[in-house]
């Protein structure tokens, strides 16, 4: 090795280091801001989870400390005394049934709207999607009259019907986008193989669209699980409440107990399932959001 080439390598190394250093300093503000934002979110959610395991006195006395003894009985109280066991079951039933019905109703419609040719197709698609802009609050009073008329107010099937209804615009929107993006060749191959139109839908297109269906299922599932306005209006009996309405009631019923830690335990019971779901499925959810809007 000659002396001059050694100097050259040294210079190259030095410039690479400089570049790295420059890049680091250029990115430092990004790291600071993103870390601060993320830390805040983790911290407050963690604070509630920890507070739900304290005693009432500790919540007020040692705001930032860990509990002396982890009070798992808070959860037992929320679960049993505040009826969260029942609400959890109701939420599971309502969420699962709603999601199945939403997909069963919206997927065929979205398929036809995106892949079949008929008059009025564009108009019908527009009408479905326009529903995304109509505030659900506008529907409440007339819908209440209709639901009373057919006798399904204050029943879980009635509540599921309402959820299916309000989910149609968004679900049709996201699924038409998905079906439209599938290639034509497979469909044609199916027809050549002698499959019926229904067979093509059921055996070929639906499986191909399963990522879209799963995305729609996740979003609607979370919407139904978290929603409380429609339960508040369409369900009167306390034993038919879902979890989020149960939490709303617990918030207002603290007057009977003054039980803050019980409230935090209730908050945690409502939050934890969707957070776990999100940890497992965050990539799919995040890519799902952009599917409809960014083509």
């Amino acid at each position: 090795m000659t002396a001059s080439s050694a100097v050259q390598i040294q210079e190259q190394n030095a410039s690479a280091r400089r570049a790295r250093r420059r890049k680091f300093w250029a990115q430092a503000p990004s790291y600071v801001v993103l870390s601060a934002w993320s830390f805040f979110t983790i911290f407050v959610i963690g604070w509630v989870l920890i507070a739900s395991l304290k005693t009432n006195a500790e919540v007020f006395r040692d705001v930032f400390n860990l509990p002396e003894k982890w009070q798992f009985t808070n959860y037992a109280k929320a679960w049993n005394a505040a009826n969260f066991a029942l609400y959890f079951r109701n939420s599971l039933i309502v969420t699962f049934s709603s999601v199945v019905c939403i997909l069963a109703v919206s997927a065929p419609a979205a398929y036809v709207l995106s892949r079949m040719n008929f008059r009025g197709r564009g108009l019908l698609t527009t009408i479905f999607i326009a529903g995304m802009g109509i505030p659900v609050l506008l529907l409440l009073i007339p819908l209440f009259v209709i639901m009373t008329g057919i006798g399904v107010v204050n029943t879980l099937p009635g509540l599921i019907l309402v959820y299916v209804t309000v989910a149609i615009p968004f679900t049709v929107y996201i699924l038409t986008g998905f079906f439209a993006s599938l290639p034509n060749e497979l469909e044609e191959a199916g027809v050549i193989d002698g499959a019926s139109d229904f067979g093509v839908f059921w055996h070929i297109m639906l499986p191909l669209a399963s990522p879209g269906l799963i995305t729609a299922a996740i979003f609607n599932g979370i919407m139904v699980w978290n929603e409380y306005l429609l339960v508040l209006v369409f369900v009167a009996d306390s034993e038919k409440r879902t979890l989020s309405l149960g939490l709303y009631s617990l918030q207002n019923a603290m007057q009977y107990t003054g039980d803050w830690v019980g409230l935090f335990a209730g908050v945690s019971i409502v939050m934890i399932p969707t957070i776990i779901l999100f940890v497992v499925l965050s990539e799919r959810m995040i890519s799902g959001i952009t599917m409809g809007a960014v083509k």
Partner: peptide, 12 residues
């Protein structure tokens, strides 16, 4: 983490 509040019930 920035997206996470979106999946938590507003009531919580």
């Amino acid at each position: 983490l920035i997206f996470m509040p979106q999946v938590i019930a507003v009531i919580a």
